[in-house]
Design a protein around this nucleic acid. Structure first.
Length: 229
DNA sequence: GACCAGGCACATC
DNA sequence: GATGTGCATGGT
């Protein structure tokens, strides 16, 4: 046990749990279900998760469209395409050289250890799957968790920059919280449910995109009433 | 012309 | 362990 953070009282935790559900319902009723991940296949989710690293989604869409046109949205095709050519296709998503490497690293895992089958990889228990994904150079916590939740469809809560910003702003945790601490904040206060985790993260990103820091839109944020709880 | 966007690895201290 | 830096495009 390395819990440097002291545990909140059960009463406080219950209150936070209630707040999380209320925030969820506020976002859901304002924005509707997001229907994530915006992709046509599990592989496309994985590719998108890597390409969207520190990158606006609209740019990722262009890169994925290029891959699609080039017939490169299969494990086999991504394994076969030369790295420089792959890099050229994903130019619009930025960091194209490093991301081409990262895609190749991920594909190597799937081909070398799982016979090219994502489904085989996804059969691993969540913890093992997470460790396996994290062992790939270029796949960090957020990318791994996005793949686990949205491609493997296993219950893990995804934390990203918006989650941090919104969570800190609404007093859920401090702005310098670490990834695992934020992830646990949600998982310890919400029922373990793939559908809920899926929608929750998607709604946070949507709120972040639409309202966060954008005046006057910010005033219309469905989470406005939760400020300083 | 800054600043930002659904991160990550690596060097350095 | 904490902090700084490179990676790069396209929208605001």
């Amino acid at each position: 046990m390395k819990s440097r953070e002291k545990q909140p009282s059960p009463k406080k935790k219950a209150k936070e749990s209630k707040a999380l559900i209320e925030m969820y319902e506020a976002m859901l009723s304002a924005l509707g279900p997001r229907g994530w991940w915006p992709a046509d296949s599990k592989l496309e989710v994985c590719v998108g998760a890597i390409l969207t690293q520190n990158t606006a989604w609209r740019n990722v869409k262009r890169a994925i469209a290029n891959l699609s046109e080039a017939g490169c949205l299969s494990v086999r095709a991504l394994a076969d395409i030369p790295e420089p050519e792959l890099a050229r296709l994903i130019v619009p998503s930025g960091y194209y050289n490093i991301k081409a490497k990262r895609l190749k690293n991920f594909i190597s895992l799937v081909t070398d250890e799982y016979g090219g089958s994502l489904n085989k990889l996804f059969k691993l228990p969540v913890g093992d799957l997470r460790n396996k994904l994290l062992s790939v150079n270029g796949v960090g916590k957020e990318t791994a968790d996005s793949i686990i939740l949205y491609a493997a469809e296993k219950p893990i809560f995804v934390v990203d920059a918006y989650t941090k910003r919104i969570g800190a702003r609404h007093g859920l945790f401090s702005a310098d919280s670490e990834y695992e601490a934020m992830r646990e904040f949600f998982t310890e206060r919400l029922p373990e449910d793939v559908k809920l985790y899926n929608e929750y993260h998607a709604l946070i990103v949507c709120v972040g995109n639409r309202y966060c820091g954008r005046l006057p839109d910010c005033a219309a944020c469905p989470l406005g009433s939760f400020l300083k709880r």
